[in-house]
Design a protein around this nucleic acid. Structure first.
Lengths: 333, 333
DNA sequence: TTGAAAGCGCTACCAG
DNA sequence: CTGGTAGCGCTTTCAA
């Protein structure tokens, strides 16, 4: 079923059908009605590929995330999706599972689709891919990572500040032995947080004992990392987790180990996902406006903000401390 | 950047470039290398729309789900995505948020993309849409709902059986006052579960007291529904939740109300999402092989299983009872 | 207000 | 093994 058949049935040219369907250009009322009816009767569904090809422009933006299992990414996705929908755009999602090969193929896929823009919510990119994208003239917005190129822009959260905040808070509560639970230690954004942790702790006093454990992002990863820490004999009074989702895994492990939170061990997260409030005990964490970020990313893509070559956009958000029940004074030795 | 430019640069015809890029037909080694290099140098990215248009066939399947916030859907998505990727297909996802308008527009979008198949993981469809789809000759697979059409097929879970199982279990534990926590009561699949609950309870004894509360799907919905039940003065010793995600919300509400689980109230879920194991207390629930379902849906779409008109496929899975800490003997009155 | 026709970028078929 | 070329279905001038 195609335009031509609709045109034939309505006894008009394909040009007219196109005008009617796209609501552009002048069309006599009666003709219009006739076309609409024909399309209806024929159950005509325009071929989007043909449309894109002929039109040259795309009403689609792409988003690639690392891990849809982590509610953080789902929320960002939903924010962007909603923003896109409300502006008559269409968002297509891809998931990498932190796999670089998936990332590369997904990016190529998006390029092949000639998306109007690409939002990357991932933890790192190979320089090669960065290069490939920068040569492409399609607007790209990164979350949390990004290189300064004319068609790039980024939205970043001041993770270091957040980590610093929470560590200081724990320090004040008397914690002197803390573990940092992370994932993908080598990825840029993650290592920033790790460094913030180390720096804050060391700046405070050389006598603070600390340790870093990492596993995969997720419930299992959090659990695994926490287990490692416990098994090592290091006996932390606090666990600072790189995100809420992992923190929930850690919480579980502690419970299984017979440790009470926060009496025996304090636990903190990052992101303030909805679950952080609902889990037990509710997590002390840092809030990040995830849906907002999704919206901002979309906006950034389609709003052609002309600016000097060197000055790509960069928006920095500060996370907000949220105090809940998973933290308390350090247990007495 | 297009085929023609690559062809010019490699000093061959576009036909040859196409052959090389698609790895079809005979091409001399040296030519092949030349083309590849040209494409590389020009940073050529094939236009997928043109490819689809010209080729006529699509290597893309679509999936529409109701609520990506609920991990259940994420898992199904991941299963399908993985299956698709491994077979060289590409999965595009859409989310409806239980909004019928979003569903309709997403379906049209998928049709417009000429997907090779469409997987619907949603709770209900308007007859009009069903009709529209059935006239379309594209394979459709439903999860949990579906009408018998030649191009439809469905994978369903025996929810009634699961609910029956869990209710009987609670009955044996002495529970005599139970609440059923649901969402979207009028949607087909949901009402089936509700009915199963009612039937089981009533069959057991007329003296069993029961109540049904419903709210939105999700943490808040579960919490809200639980709150309603508690506020109503009805004092259940058990809450049967239509899914784990809502159960987690209910768990939270009970905790806030100062009720202990399972000592004061037993709680059950459905799906056995990863969180069910990690939350506190861990949920007694019914396992559904979500990733598997995703895989099956994909398979069903691309494997052209020819069969008699009337006999569309229908695969029924039985959920498996999983006993955890959120349930126990009914409290003494 | 409408139609004819030139592409959009690619695949696939037919020759050579 | 390679090139020419006819579409795929739609949008968009340009004329009428």
């Amino acid at each position: 079923m195609n335009l031509a058949e609709v045109a034939k049935r309505a006894k008009v040219s394909t040009a007219t059908v196109s005008r009617v369907l796209n609501d552009v250009g002048p069309v006599k009322k009666s003709t219009r009605a006739r076309v609409l009816r024909a399309a209806e009767e024929l159950r005509y569904h325009p071929n989007l590929h043909a449309r894109n090809l002929a039109g040259g422009k795309s009403r689609t933006v792409g988003m690639i995330v690392s891990n849809m299992e982590n509610p953080f990414f789902v929320d960002v996705y939903k924010g962007a999706e909603q923003a896109a929908r409300s502006r008559g755009y269409d968002l297509v999602l891809a998931n990498t599972d932190y796999n670089p090969e998936n990332l590369a193929s997904n990016i190529r896929l998006m390029i092949g689709r000639r998306v109007a823009g690409l939002a990357l919510v991932i933890s790192e990119m190979e320089p090669g891919l960065i290069q490939e994208l920068s040569e492409l003239a399609i607007p790209v917005v990164f979350y949390d990572v990004g290189a300064p190129k004319h068609n790039f822009s980024n939205i970043v959260v001041n993770y270091a500040k957040g980590i610093e905040r929470v560590v200081n808070y724990l320090l004040e509560l008397g914690h002197r032995r803390m573990a940092f639970i992370s994932h993908h230690r080598t990825l840029g954004p993650l290592s920033v947080r790790e460094r913030a942790f180390r720096d804050t702790v060391q700046n405070y006093s050389a006598s603070i004992e600390w340790r870093i454990a990492a596993s995969a992002d997720g419930l299992d990863g959090g659990r695994q990392a926490a287990r490692e820490v416990l098994a090592s004999g290091f006996n932390p009074t606090a666990m600072i987790c790189v995100n809420d989702f992992m923190a929930m895994g850690a919480l579980h492990e502690l419970r299984e180990a017979g440790l009470r939170v926060p009496q025996d061990v304090s636990v903190t997260g990052f992101d303030n996902i909805r679950l952080a409030e609902v889990c037990y005990p509710p997590l002390t964490t840092l809030h990040i406006p995830r849906e907002r970020i999704g919206q901002l990313m979309f906006q950034d893509l389609i709003e052609p903000v002309p600016m000097p070559e060197a000055c790509r956009r960069r928006l920095v958000l500060d996370p907000e401390f949220v105090l809940r029940g998973s933290t308390g004074a350090a247990r007495k030795p």
